[in-house]
């Protein structure tokens, strides 16, 4: 087991915090950690990094306690903090040199390769860099010492779509080399592309730990279908699918796995436009909760 979190609890004075968080990440796995802002993702990660002492339970990295043996535990990690805050007055190069010194690994070739891949100028002063470029410097610092385990806190925020793809390629490459990932995010789409499994956290509690495909099937998709005729709209609203009238000619159809019915039904209509409406994480949660409630 690369990462082991058991009954991890940290209650803050305002009553918020994390409560009995439990999950494992296996060797070679890319594990997503999903939750809305303020749900406890970062607090959990802070325990893994040894920044906080658990009130109850533990977090372990490769069997090493993340608090009591924090520096040996961290020696296996590459960490990308959620909020990038560098030291003042350094160039990208100076920062990476310092990090290499702290990591105790100077693999110049790997670093150069990463800089080349992410395409930025490391000689520039960090203060003058754009948010995206800073994120790139952070990514290089996280990957350059070739750690066994990566902990990435919202890694793609601040990157443009092109760089996001590049980053995902990088993660997949490392995964192919047998590396383990814990990746937090508030966007399902981001996790969906890379992760094998994901845990969903809400209000400090893990509500589900699922295979990513199960989460995908749980995700409901909505389409806005625009027709040409009001009569057709009326008849579509009568169909067996979950429909809702948006305006005179547009109907919102919600699907959950029943794509065949959707296609077959629409084939009988004259469709002017279809636009997809991705479900937000909150909505997935709501689905998850309603499912739980029905079961209990």
């Amino acid at each position: 087991m690369m990462i082991e979190i058991k009954d991890l609890t940290q209650e803050f004075s305002n009553g918020k915090g994390i409560f009995d968080v439990t999950f494992d990440v296996e060797d070679g796995e890319v594990f997503g950690f999903l939750g809305p802002n303020g749900s406890g993702k970062s607090t959990t990660i802070r325990h893994l990094m040894g920044y906080m002492k658990a009130q109850k339970g533990y977090a372990k990295i490769k069997g090493l306690d993340a608090w009591h043996q924090q520096s040996s535990a961290r020696s296996h990690l590459g960490y990308l903090p959620g909020e990038i805050a560098f030291l003042d007055g350094m160039t990208g190069h100076q920062f990476l040199n310092m990090m290499a010194g702290l990591q105790g690994v100077h693999d110049k070739a790997r670093r150069a390769d990463l800089i080349d891949k992410l395409q930025f100028d490391p000689k520039e002063s960090i203060r003058k860099m754009s948010k995206g470029t800073k994120q790139k410097v952070g990514i290089v610092a996280t990957f350059m010492h070739d750690p066994d385990i990566y902990i990435l806190d919202e890694p793609t925020s601040g990157l443009d779509p092109l760089m996001q793809n590049l980053f995902i390629d990088l993660v997949m490459e490392e995964k192919a080399r047998g590396k383990t990932f814990l990746m937090s995010s508030h966007s399902f789409a981001e996790i969906e592309r890379t992760c094998d499994r994901a845990a969903i956290i809400r209000n400090g509690r893990i509500v589900a730990t699922e295979n990513i495909h199960e989460l995908q099937s749980m995700q409901r998709k909505a389409f806005n279908v625009t027709l040409t005729d009001k009569k057709e709209v009326a008849s579509l609203l009568e169909s067996e699918m979950k429909t809702e009238k948006v305006d005179e000619l547009t109907v919102k159809i919600e699907l959950q796995g029943n794509y065949d019915v959707f296609i077959n039904t629409l084939s009988g209509y004259h469709v002017k436009n279809i636009s997809a409406d991705d479900q937000s994480l909150e909505e997935i949660f709501m689905d998850y909760y309603s499912k739980e409630e029905v079961q209990s």
Binding site: M49, Y51, Q70, S75, Y79, A85, F86, L87, Q103, H145
Partner: peptide
Amino acid sequence: RLVDRGSMAYLLSTRVSR
């Protein structure tokens, strides 16, 4: 300052102890 701004997270992300 390093704790307040969060840069300490970087310094404490490696095997180097507090």
